[in-house]
Nucleic acid binder design. Sequence first.
DNA 1: GTTTAGCACTCTCTGAGCATGAGTGCTAAG
DNA 2: CTTAGCACTCATGCTCAGAGAGTGCTAAAC
Lengths: 335, 335
Amino acid sequence: MDARKRQVLEALIDDYIATAEPVGSRTLAKKYRLGVSPATIRNEMADLEDLGFLEQPHTSAGRVPSDKGYRYYVDEIMRPVVLDLAERQRIRQAYQARVRELHWFIHQTARLVSELTLYPSLVVAPPVEQAALIDLSFVSLGQDTVLMVLKTSTGMVENQTLLVPEEFDSDKLRSLAEDFTQEFRGVAIHELKNRILDPLQGDVKRYPELWQLALKWVTGHDGDEDKVSLAGPLNILNYPEFRDVEKVRRVLGFLEKETAVELASRHYAEGVQVVIGAESSLDDIQDCSLVTATYRVGGNVVGHLMVLGPRRMHYNRVMSIVEAVSDELSRVLHG
Amino acid sequence: MDARKRQVLEALIDDYIATAEPVGSRTLAKKYRLGVSPATIRNEMADLEDLGFLEQPHTSAGRVPSDKGYRYYVDEIMRPVVLDLAERQRIRQAYQARVRELHWFIHQTARLVSELTLYPSLVVAPPVEQAALIDLSFVSLGQDTVLMVLKTSTGMVENQTLLVPEEFDSDKLRSLAEDFTQEFRGVAIHELKNRILDPLQGDVKRYPELWQLALKWVTGHDGDEDKVSLAGPLNILNYPEFRDVEKVRRVLGFLEKETAVELASRHYAEGVQVVIGAESSLDDIQDCSLVTATYRVGGNVVGHLMVLGPRRMHYNRVMSIVEAVSDELSRVLHG
DNA sequence: GTTTAGCACTCTCTGAGCATGAGTGCTAAG
DNA sequence: CTTAGCACTCATGCTCAGAGAGTGCTAAAC
């Protein structure tokens, strides 16, 4: 794999990313200053195909990068791109708002990323389960309804409306909340459920009403409510590889399914990750690549961010954007 | 417009809705018991075309209903369909849950309708602006953050996180909330804004801290946050008229835009409304029909519900579903 | 030994020409 | 008024040939 092969591979992938058309030797020689004739390039291309970096749709077409080719491009060739000033400013200013609910951040981030990259983007909130309880309050909503406000170590606020069997007056609610906070501050939410529900611990006897409330919450809590935000799904329609409605259905269907969320969350490694085509071994997105990143909230609890596009994605641009946004988000969520 | 013409029109539209193919006289004679020969049907079809109810894609194709044809079908011919037991039960049980946030109802409704109809569905919440204040509480989230919980006459709860300049202790917050509720109970939200912001009214002087908070809210309140839910957009891909990616883009783009929300909300008339093709005079959905319905919350504050599909929509089925769901939703939201 | 010009070859794509078939409108007979 | 018969129209699908893009190979040039 000498320098010229890398040059040819780079030029070819750049061109294919730009045009979505198989690239021939003549095109390459004309558009890029490689200093050699088409015939030489043809030889190099044949070698690159033998090495598995390129593929030929059919005998008389140009070459197209293979998954392996993209992988080499991403890992070894590609230079990181510097975002221009306007984009950096846009990212800096994206989170200047008064509100602070988690779902707003999630939503805003997804929108920002999809608008900058021109690909669909999915943002997954850090799982509440793993966060620790900081503070709990109840607000009576009259009759038999109580709003539970839960502040967790993710710095975010979870609201949940509960039905309670009897009417609690606001003093009673306040003292319940205080007791509860006192007792369980710092305990992880999932652990909290066990603690409250476990009859062997003394808590049940000491807080019968709490037990009632908590039980309602545990059973009524359907994990994924607000925790995911998808933005710009229609961006996918701009790319010619998705002319076919079947493909659109598969890809957008994938983004709406649980699978996408799981996939985004599976990449535990911090920082920016790239998955190219068949590397994901998921049928629905064989023709797609995805770029994921993690972000931190306060300590080490992490959320995930994902961009999905055609295999000929603008990897360097997307990676830069995703990195900048996740950094900014982590920064903003640190307080 | 005699009885037989209506029969022919009905059969033709039924067939076209089922197949999406232009319908010929022979098909009609064979599949539907009209008791006459293709030739007779041809004559009737020619008449129906003269009357503007049918159109011919080209000379040697069958006929296709025009907007006017669908309109006549919907208004005069079509018989309401009775939903089967399973569907009725599904609708009845859709809202049995412990949670009570408005956005949950919106979301749930959109999903329910799109799953039953197999078309995309959009649900718009009643505008908070027009609801009256019932009750307000503040919950300190520590530092400079306060959660404002607003109970309105829509029976729903709005949460909003506010940044406040100074730290309020919980007693202070409670008394503020009590004063506020006392003063403004029953006032409409939009009126509330005026009342608080108008320096001519005495309120500003009496509640300087409140004024601060309220100002934050008024400026930070970005209307449409949670108020709309779109479900099942990909259903549109199942219909052959949307084989073309361009059309998909236009229709799904429409559903993501403000226009869709405005359109849904424009139909003030209560009950189920149908808009067929060009009747909407919106370029993006010339090939679509939509069925809208309103629902009530408590008194007369209304939200909107919309189903969008190809012009050859299953009007009677969709209308029945939309009616049943909006009734059920109104019923559930009455308490 | 590497590079390149030349050339035959392969394969897709496009458009023309043609047959097919569905469906119509018209006419005349029932 | 209905219907059988028939000529006519037009989209669709098929084949086939030509064009064009691109390759691989060979042999000459550097």
